[in-house]
Design a protein around this nucleic acid. Sequence first.
DNA 1: AGCCAATCTTGACAACGATCAGATTATCCC
DNA 2: GGGATAATCTGATCGTTGTCAAGATTGGCT
Lengths: 210, 210
Amino acid sequence: MEQAQLTEARPYHHGDLRRALVDAGRRLLEVEGGASISLRAVAREAGVSPAAPYHHFRDKSELLDALAIEGWDQLAVQMRAALAEAATGRDRLVTLGVAYVQFAKMNPAIYRVMFDCSQSHESMPEKLRDEGAYRLVCDTLVESGIDPRDEVGLELAAVAIWCAAHGVAEMVGFKEFAPLQAHLGGEAAFLQAIFSQLDLFRPRSAVTAS
Amino acid sequence: MEQAQLTEARPYHHGDLRRALVDAGRRLLEVEGGASISLRAVAREAGVSPAAPYHHFRDKSELLDALAIEGWDQLAVQMRAALAEAATGRDRLVTLGVAYVQFAKMNPAIYRVMFDCSQSHESMPEKLRDEGAYRLVCDTLVESGIDPRDEVGLELAAVAIWCAAHGVAEMVGFKEFAPLQAHLGGEAAFLQAIFSQLDLFRPRSAVTAS
DNA sequence: AGCCAATCTTGACAACGATCAGATTATCCC
DNA sequence: GGGATAATCTGATCGTTGTCAAGATTGGCT
């Protein structure tokens, strides 16, 4: 089962080491809490020497990039699933936001890597815009009434939602919010309340810059 | 002027090394971009041996904590100043949000340390609640019409605002937003538009959890 | 078969966080 | 004042990390 513990008959050339390294990295991120991952540890987990990864990634950060991209994919899948389930028709945007935050909370280390990579590149991954979570938000926005021809308004609304979701995702773990969360009857209700506060599901095209 | 470059007559006991270390750390954070700060580099900058800091901080993370606390103080000062200037009476909450984001953008490394420390402690620094930026938000919320006796509603609104501000602070640097920002006429207008989207200045007490 | 390029290992280097014994100095008690 | 005691700083050291260069091993192409 452990693909690296055979100790015998391990061919000198690992069939697809790149794939194995990314998987090992994901395994380590799931286990180890919020600590920073170590390239050597990933190689160790994959059962290769500490220098082997450098034949598949120029840098440590390039490995992290690969992990981040898979994370964004996974997030999009989960958001799509949430949207498919809750077909309430009205607050689908809130559903998206809650799914986003819950992903971040259930995979904190991966989410951190995702966002750190984005920030170091000063841009979000391309796939996000084309077929990922960002596109999902835009579609849901249009579907919920915003004018698709008002590109600025649409983008502004999407960006605002994304900011709110990211902010909530990183703040929701604070101990200070535990009593409030309990008072509202659980995490889901807490998230819904916050997103309602932010009025996410009734965006207007406020392009009137003073 | 440089307090560590005298090379002569430097007494064995550095008058207040703790203070000097924090200052050195802040200097390094200002210069060095988003990279992780090195404890040894801080000691070097302060002109002491690599082991000296361990007599004032148990850990590297404890030094970062000290830096973070000063950062939160600085943020509160800046927000207070922004509030004092723009006495428009209406959208003071937006003013606060914009000040928050601009601090984060002008001190990205410090802001990151601030938030990382908070996250590793799973709580925000205490001073924030008592006399810091959080209190400022609550006061402005009350001042702008929310019922101060509705503790849950007040906290919910403050938390929501904080989440939004943090989210915007970390997303606003993305290249993808540059055209939108230009189209709206600069960063300030962009931030105001986003905060308007989030309806921050007209919060309602939405304690109705389904 | 034979060669080339891709792949993996070994060994090494500098930098880091952390610890410990020892040097140096301040402080306090008599 | 003088000497003990605690605080502070240095030096050396350990284990770990990211990264590189040189050599071993192998798959694929002719």
